[in-house]
Design a protein around this nucleic acid. Structure first.
Lengths: 202, 202
DNA sequence: GCTAGAAAGCTAACGCCAATAGCTAACGGC
DNA sequence: GCCGTTAGCTATTGGCGTTAGCTTTCTAGC
C-alpha cells in the first residue's frame, strides 16, 4: 500500500481549508483524516492531537492576517492607512472565516511562539496609528478601540448579526470614517494617562 | 428512590450557571446531569437535546441582556444614556461570560421566538440613538457601529485579548467617549442614504 | 384511601470522536 | 540489497449525545 505522503504542513493546510469551509468549531481530526483518506490516529505522526492542530491553524491564520495588514498599510499613512487596514482586516475574515475564528482563540501565556505571532497584527495597527497625533498615554487605549471596532463588526457580520436590508459595506464605511474622525479631531483631551509600554498584545 | 424534581427552567438555569463558570463551549448534557445527580438521558424529558439546551440558554441570556440594557437606558438620554448602555452591556458580559457567549450564536431564521428575543437589545440601542440628531438613512449604520464597538471590546476582553498593563476600564472609556464624540459632532455628512426600515436585528 | 394513567428517571445500547499502544510495511541511506 | 527509521495501520479505551424501552414515582379522580 503506497503512503499518503502527509507532512505537518499539508495536514495543517488541509485543516485550515476545512475550517474555512465548515467552520473552526467543525474542525476535527476525523474530518481531516477522512479528507486525506487516512485513519485518524495517523495524524498524530504529524500533529500534536486536536489541541495541537488547532494551535497550528491559529498560528497560520494569525500570521497570514498580519501579512495582509502589513501589505495593506505599507506605502500609506494617516487616514488612508487606516482605511486600508480596516479593509484588509475584513477582507481576510471574509476569505478565511475559519481562520479568522481561529485567530480569536488566544494563545497560552506560556506559548511564546504563539504569543509573538498574535502580537504582529497589533504591531501593524500600532505602526499605523503612530502616524496620528496621539499622546503616548492614549496609544494603547486607541489601539484597543480600533481593534474592538474592527473585530466587533467582522464578528457580528460573520455570525449573521446584521439582518436589516441596509448595505453592510456602507455600514462598515460609517464605522471606519467615524473612527478616523475621532483620530483626527480628538488627539488629546484626557490628560491623566499611564506611561507607555512596548509592543505586544494590547 | 425519590425524584430529582427537575423542570425545564431548573435545567436551563443550571446550564446557564455552568456555562458562566466553565464557558459556553464546555456546556454539555453530561455536565448538567452530573450537577443534578441524574443520568444524562433524563434531561431529555425537560430539554430538546444539547441543541435545544443551547438555544434556551441563549434565549435566557439575550433576554436578560435586553432587560439590563433597558434598565440602564430608562430615565436617561443623549450621551448619558449611551454611557449607561455601554456600561450595562459590559457589566453583563462580566457577570455572565457564558451567557454572553451564548448570545453570540444567532438564532435560526425560522425560529421566530428567538428572532424576536435577539432583536430586543438592538431595539434598546436604537431607542437611545434616536435621542441624537442622526438622519434616518444613517440610523441602521450607526446602530451597527455601536454594536460593533461594544461587542468587539467585550469579546476581545473576554478572550484575553488585552495583554498590556494599561487599565482596561480606561480603554473602555476612551472607546465610549470617542463614540459619543462622533454621535454628537457628526450627525449627517454622507447624504446618499437608503430608506429606513423597522426594528429587528440590524 | 385507592387506583389508574401520566410522566420522571433509569439502564442498555449505538455511533462518533479523541487518544494511546503496539504492529507492519514502505521508504531512504549506505 | 540491506537496515534502521517512520508513516500509517488496527485495536482499544473513555467520553459524549442520542434513542428505545422499562420501572417507579407522583398525582387526579373516584
Amino acid at each position: 500500500m503506497p503512503r499518503a505522503g502527509l507532512t505537518p504542513d499539508l495536514v495543517v493546510a488541509e485543516a485550515s481549508r476545512l475550517s474555512d469551509e465548515k467552520g473552526f468549531e467543525a474542525l476535527s481530526l476525523a474530518a481531516v483524516a477522512k479528507r486525506f483518506g487516512v485513519a485518524t490516529p495517523s495524524l498524530y505522526k504529524h500533529v500534536d492531537g486536536l489541541t495541537g492542530l488547532r494551535r497550528e491553524v491559529s498560528l497560520r491564520a494569525v500570521t497570514e492576517l498580519g501579512d495582509r495588514l502589513q501589505g495593506a498599510a505599507v506605502g500609506r499613512s494617516g487616514p488612508d492607512a487606516v482605511r486600508a487596514l480596516f479593509g484588509a482586516y475584513r477582507a481576510y475574515a471574509h476569505e478565511h472565516p475559519g481562520g479568522y475564528a481561529a485567530t480569536q482563540r488566544g494563545a497560552a501565556p506560556t506559548d511564546h511562539e504563539a504569543y509573538a505571532a498574535f502580537a504582529r497584527p497589533v504591531e501593524v495597527i500600532a505602526a499605523v496609528l503612530r502616524g496620528f497625533d496621539i499622546p503616548e498615554a492614549r496609544m494603547v487605549h486607541t489601539i484597543r478601540a480600533l481593534r474592538s471596532a474592527v473585530h466587533g463588526f467582522v464578528d457580528l457580520e460573520a455570525h449573521g448579526g446584521f439582518r436589516m436590508p441596509e448595505d453592510i459595506d456602507e455600514s462598515y464605511d460609517v464605522l471606519v470614517e467615524g473612527f478616523i474622525h475621532v483620530l483626527e479631531r480628538r488627539p488629546g483631551h484626557t490628560g491623566h494617562g499611564a506611561e507607555e509600554a512596548e509592543e505586544g498584545e494590547n
